[in-house]
Design a protein around this nucleic acid. Structure first.
Lengths: 236, 236, 236, 236
DNA sequence: GATGAATGAGTTTTCATTCAT
DNA sequence: GATGAATGAAAACTCATTCAT
């Protein structure tokens, strides 16, 4: 194993990472002392590094190097490598939540709502690779850190409520079967949307197909929507 | 000494790991020096450690400690930490292959064959957590090491052939729709079987449900078979 | 953040430390900026921290945190950690001096005067743990800093004069032996009064007795007075 | 505070430290791999550094530098800085114990026995400055580490038994008073022997007298024996 | 083949101190 | 006078790997 810390090389192929936008500076003059910006900057770089390298694989030095500040500030604000990792997790989960606010499924008819939910889930995972990778990493860590993330449980409850609502309305409209457990359905949707992103490297190696290629992506999207709708549809 | 190298603790809840069986000693005379046994022993322990901790998280010392031999031997046989990791990957993929030999889907009618394939895939992932974890880890590594595993590509080709055969026969029998891509279908099946195992920690934390609980497992198995069959079925 | 800077925990069992009294604000109008008060506040906190942790063990951050002001002020007023330590030493020695003024041994008959001196010395050490600890710390530092404390030498000269006076009068009165060196006697008295305070932790651990317990304190006090008087007494 | 790690400078004036004897090599050829010697070497150097600088003041690098090995070995054998400190404590207490074996007070008449005990205690403290310093340091640490030293409590019990025996025999012989508590007497003796060593720096600074000067040492030794005997002697 | 001791090069973390506002 | 943010230098500790026996 080469030691040179080239940092965060693996992955990141395709869509550019969603983390550090240098232009995110406060619109007012670039001030020298801007703790919020400093923190955000560190957090953005750390998101990249942790999602690319894992908790143990990430290097504090590598993060610091790509930051506008020094390693010291990283400890000043986040206390430790683990603390920083945790903060990254928190940020990432917070980000999703904001996005989900925009999804008003309850205003759509159940079938269209279900389609919208699946498409949203698909798109989100497809775009937020860092999120997918961090979840993967957390599963290797035994979900040790995510447990302490406040926004984590809340977010999941929301999704389940959405699904319950869709299912109930679908059943009432005679469109959906009545024996589907909402959490199981969530798992099913997640599986389909998550796996092709999280495992795209082994998939690509195995079949010579990159699941993130636009054509494939479109086909997968349609397939997954189709599969979910067939699964919930009431058969006559 | 703060950290105490307990190593490889995370995960492993539920089904006991499939790796190191101390009793696996060759029944014939236990010779003092048995290179094969030594290698196998190292490999078993390493499988556990790598699958529990990841490539970067695994500790050579931790592996050596739980081995019947010493660290030196590990280097003697496998050259480096990476070499050992690679060997683990190779072993794990070899193991699957053997199992798949037993699955004779071509002798079943297409619907039953599809069901059998899905059930096999489900059961395999459900049991072989180490495999699932190692694949996950490989995806974090950008599939860098699995690419060099000989049995890897071959195995996947086989699965696709099986699916192609099932689809063709199903279409011919008027049971399956004709617009399903075999690799996409494989991805779909894999997603459903893999995700609930690979992400069971975050899932468990999010919903307070352990997907490996027998009751849930049975339900998931039925659900996945159902979802796949509904997906491929020809509608009239 | 692992270590959490709780600072200055060890010791302080029993009698509450004599340092920082938050209520010590000047009774006259609490002005926003009161340099004297700020300095005193820093000094009090620093006395605690240094006496609890030693010079190297003390943390500037820990001191600043428990202060009403910020770290910057600490440097503003005292220049450096060492400067602050020195200032603490100075303050502590000054405090003693004030107290010793009240002891008018020369007005008592030699035996009673000696008793009074020993009792005073005992009581002082017994109460001023911070003083005892700081002296101990200075001895670990090779007395490097105390050398620069002005009140230090002066104070000792005074004590020796007092002892010389007592011895002379005692000898004249036929009560004391004539072969006692005043500095040696001072050392003897100090040893007895100092040790039980400075080493009370190891003593407590060794014998399960806390020398600062009231009953034990009283007995020690009597014992030490007794020992000293027997030592100086002229035998017939 | 200068940062350059010149290490272990303070103190050590006078008698050369009792720690690392390079000649302590196993008499048989100087072997390259000699764990016992390596450990002892580290321990000896560490004893010096810790006793000179305290736990927080000591520098792992400084210890390693003066060792025949590298810093890594220090962690290999002792796990951490604290672990090494603890080992030093253990060694130092063990050393005393061995010495005390040679003191057969019970064979002497009570007065002579008491004199021998005091003289032994005096000599021990006078010579083993590292011991005295380490005890002092432990008192600053709140005796946190010495508590875990096995030989610590045992040693103290032994001393008390010796004193009890002497007192009992002295009382029986009509030589000693009967109201002396053995632990108190031990404290008294310790105080007198310990203080002049432990606090010799401040003492030297205060009075311009170095208590370790041979002439002064002899006088102190006589004085302390005298003081103790006068204290225990039965008055007619 | 097998082993415990040894190690160089990192890696995380801490500390006293200073800067810009 | 006062403050929170910032920092370089050093300190503790860890890791994969190799050596002597």
């Amino acid at each position: 194993m080469k030691k040179g810390s080239k940092a965060a090389e693996p992955d990141t192929n395709g869509i550019p990472s969603d983390a550090p936008r240098k232009d995110a500076r406060r619109s007012d003059a670039r001030r020298k002392y801007d703790p919020e910006q400093t923190k955000r900057n560190i957090l953005d770089v750390a998101t990249q590094e942790f999602s690319a390298m894992g908790l143990t694989g990430a290097r504090v030095d590598a993060i610091a190097e790509r930051t506008n500040t020094t390693k010291r500030m990283l400890y000043y604000y986040f206390g430790s490598k683990e603390g920083l990792y945790q903060a990254v997790l928190e940020k990432v989960y917070g980000d999703i939540r904001e996005l989900e606010q925009d999804l008003h499924v309850s205003e759509l008819d159940p079938v269209e709502g279900m389609r919208a939910l699946v498409e949203f889930t698909f798109d989100y995972h497809d775009r937020q690779r860092d999120f997918v990778r961090l979840v993967t990493i957390e599963n290797i860590n035994g979900a040790k850190y995510v447990e302490q993330v406040k926004s984590f449980k809340g977010r999941n409850v929301t999704v389940i409520h959405t699904i319950e609502d869709l299912l109930a309305r679908g059943i009432a409209a005679g469109k959906f079967r009545s024996d589907v457990d909402p959490i199981d359905l969530h798992l099913l949707i997640s599986s389909l949307c998550f796996h092709r992103v999280g495992n795209r490297h082994t998939f690509g190696t195995a079949f010579g197909r990159d699941p993130s290629h636009p054509r494939l992506r479109a086909r997968h999207r349609a397939m997954i929507v189709d599969a979910v709708l067939r699964f919930v549809r009431k058969e006559d």
